[in-house]
């Protein structure tokens, strides 16, 4: 058993090491309008690459710019400096190559579970029969059979997030961006959802960028954990979790990673 590998990352690019990066973030900063410019600097000179089919977590305290960074990859927020590229093409806005899951499931309350999943397919003009079939597949993938025609408010928090994941997967994006998707769930549901997310990730190979403030969640899920620090938001360290899955949450190795990351955060 080797000890966790820690790489110091300062100005250098946090590199995935794979031949062709899926996501390239190059010296990106985001300045929000604020009275004190230092406080408005959400992300400062961040560079990071994410490899094809890699599962990367952005971990840090609130205010470390992890959500802003994710929103910039999504194309929902434009960087004030630097560049973000996907498959070598610069990001200019949201695109069908990226799907997103939000902390507050952000389901359309006026649509049933299956209609929520079909939302993007309708936009794309997919015929109804095909749409239904595709959505049904996703319903079974996220284990919600029998709940197709429930409205979001009739579903528990965990179920809502399953619908949100299925909705993001419906357009078959290559990249899945997840903003603390399980942050509002109770401990037990959360562990179940993590298991299921990994199962889905292994079934439908995706590149995943996962924002979280839970150390154990990041260790359990990720190939690589990017530790960020606040004021201004910067990458502090990256930790490669080179442990085969399924991982044991209570193992000694897990505890070692936990300690390493905790030290990195402080």
């Amino acid at each position: 058993m080797q000890s966790p590998r820690v790489e110091r990352v300062t100005e250098a690019v946090a590199n995935a090491g794979s031949a062709r990066p899926k996501i390239e973030i190059l010296q990106v900063s985001k300045q929000f309008p604020a009275e004190d410019p230092a406080r408005g600097l959400a992300v400062s000179n961040v560079s990071l690459t994410v490899g094809q089919n890699e599962f990367v977590s952005l971990l840090g305290r609130s205010g470390c710019g992890k959500t802003t960074l994710l929103n910039m990859i999504a194309g929902l927020v434009a960087p004030t400096q630097g560049q973000i590229a996907i498959d070598g093409k610069p990001v200019r806005g949201p695109g069908p190559d990226r799907g997103m899951v939000f902390q507050s499931s952000a389901l359309f309350p006026w649509l049933t579970a299956i209609d929520n999943i079909e939302f993007g397919l309708v936009n794309r003009g997919v015929p109804k029969v095909e749409r239904r079939r595709h959505a049904q597949d996703l319903i079974s993938l996220v284990q919600l059979s029998g709940f197709e025609s429930k409205y979001p408010r009739e579903l528990s928090g965990g179920m809502q997030q399953r619908v949100a994941i299925a909705r993001a997967l419906a357009l078959d994006p290559e990249i899945l961006l997840m903003d603390e998707p399980f942050g509002a769930l109770d401990e037990l549901t959360r562990a179940e959802m993590q298991d299921e997310l990994l199962a889905i990730w292994q079934k439908r190979t995706k590149t995943v960028v996962f924002v979280t403030h839970s150390i154990s969640e990041a260790i359990f899920l990720s190939d690589r954990v990017i530790v960020m620090s606040p004021h201004p938001g910067r990458i502090r360290e990256q930790i490669v979790i080179d442990v085969p899955r399924p991982r044991q949450r209570a193992s000694v190795q897990f505890a070692q990673f936990y300690e390493t990351i905790q030290r990195a955060i402080e």
Partner: peptide, 25 residues
Amino acid sequence: DPALIRAALMLDTSPRAMFYRVILP
């Protein structure tokens, strides 16, 4: 809810669809 707008933006929603399928409902 701005979260709904963002969610729709990530789902290939045109400005027209944004009005009829998100804002109006």
